[in-house]
Write a protein that binds this DNA or RNA. Structure first.
Lengths: 201, 201
DNA sequence: TGTACATCAGTGAACGCGCGTTCACTGATGTAC
DNA sequence: TGTACATCAGTGAACGCGCGTTCACTGATGTAC
């Protein structure tokens, strides 16, 4: 009985996963506010109605797909920061920029949630935890750099600035992907230098 | 004849203005992707159909309202920068933050255009001109500060970072408007200090 | 000065489409007796 | 071992609503004769 019900749970999870995977793939192809339930169902090879056996509504599915993707992405960044040498701020900002550039769909979704105004409490809490963990990581880095005062302020500053770089410099009619990435990296490096000069005082 | 046709032109402009004003007011009350043509018509006291005598479609009206608002806002910032004393970077970033906080609806619209991916060429060009003028103003400021090298890079860095501060720190369930503004200003000041320390080297 | 006609701001109702969501149903598998 | 019944994944079509846009029309003002 127990093993059977466990098996069923597993199957159910597997089906959920198929749907979330499909959602993620759709988000990669177009702005997330243009992704429809029908799109996702088609991609997953199922009927739209079936999605509603696993998620109460569209928002729940979107939030789950979004959180999974962002979590993975952040984990990767944390690992990088963790293994970076003392005071390797230039490498850390480079990694940050590179990750967000590679996962632009999540960045856009994140911004959208931030800017929409009507965030649901739950999602907000989850995002907050992620943000705080990122800030903690930055704190650790600044400690290694021997910046003594206002460490948390510096982490906030760095975090916001990096977000701003990704938000501000993006594709437009006369620039291709690699040019955008290069520009972002150049500006991020410049930012890193500011912190280094401050630390060196 | 000539005066008459001129008068008619004026009337037409006045009616356009009424519509754009109404749009602006609506944008101030809710996220701009929830503002409908019916809302705007109602606010302007006219029939929805009449809007289409002055604008070919919704996007044109939105772009016009957006550009007008952003233009006014940017002009105000330029004036501030222009009249600020030598190297008053702290005051400039403070003004920047304050303006964008006060005009959050334009900030959100701007971000949305940036992030949407499908920008129309025209709007993009207009935004680009605004951005470049802002950068020129920052250049002038950094020159006053006697930062010798890579002035344009610094302007890009400052611009992106300020955008990031406004984008990242915003209202949420447990923070009210003034707290948000204070936090933004604190972080922006910290940013300014980084530039100052760099300039002082 | 009066009459026929053109012009054009302005309107409320209707069209049409996209899309989230639900409905009524099918068919396979498991369960009780 | 066979039969009646429950459960539940899964479906295609339909519902309902919101909203951009258009339609067919009105009524005022100007113009030509």
């Amino acid at each position: 009985m127990n093993t059977l019900s466990k098996l069923k749970e597993k199957e159910k999870d597997a089906r959920r996963k198929i749907i979330v995977d499909a959602a993620e793939k759709e988000f990669a192809t177009k702005p997330f506010n243009r992704v429809t339930m029908r799109d996702i169902a088609k991609r997953a090879g199922i009927s739209p109605a079936l999605i509603y056996r696993h998620f109460p509504d569209q928002q729940s599915l979107f939030v789950e797909a979004f959180c999974r993707g962002v979590n993975e992405m952040f984990e990767e960044i944390y690992r990088k920061i963790d293994t970076s040498s003392d005071g390797a701020i230039r490498q850390v900002v480079g990694d940050f920029i590179e990750f967000f550039t590679r996962n632009d769909q999540y960045f856009r979704m994140m911004m959208n949630f931030f800017l929409s105004g009507s965030v649901d409490e739950d999602l907000f809490a989850k995002l907050n935890i992620l943000e705080r963990r990122m800030l903690d990581n930055f704190d650790a880095m600044f400690t290694k750099m021997r910046i003594a005062s206002n460490i948390r302020h510096h982490s906030h500053t760095l975090f916001a600035s990096l977000i701003g770089i990704v938000a501000t410099f993006r594709n437009h009619p006369h620039k291709n992907d690699t040019e955008v990435l290069q520009h972002r990296e150049r500006i991020a490096e410049n930012l890193a230098r500011l912190f280094m000069s401050f630390a060196g005082e």
